[in-house]
């Protein structure tokens, strides 16, 4: 079991949070959906993992490289 973080690759606003703490996610399953460039852009699990914590809230502004969630793989 390894802990790691999920970061956003684009600057934008958190539009929806689609996962919750403790949830088991498959690879590529979205954790949050950002709104940027008028697109709904998912930030997804890089690997199958368990969500330990989501550190952003809906409406937050995020910058490229910001941590969105802590996960355990």
């Amino acid at each position: 079991m390894a802990r790691s973080t999920v970061k956003t690759e684009i600057t934008g606003k958190v539009w929806k949070i689609t996962a919750e703490k403790g949830q088991r996610l498959a690879e590529d399953e979205p954790i949050v959906i950002l709104e940027s460039m008028k697109m709904e852009i998912p930030v997804a699990a890089p690997l199958a993992c368990t969500v330990l914590e989501i550190v952003v809230s809906e409406g937050d502004s995020v910058t490229e490289g910001d941590v969105i969630a802590h996960i355990e793989t």
Binding site: E9, M37, M39, I41
Partner: peptide, 8 residues
């Protein structure tokens, strides 16, 4: 590719 960065 819209899949990444919305295609921007």
């Amino acid at each position: 590719n819209p899949m990444f960065k919305g295609g921007a």
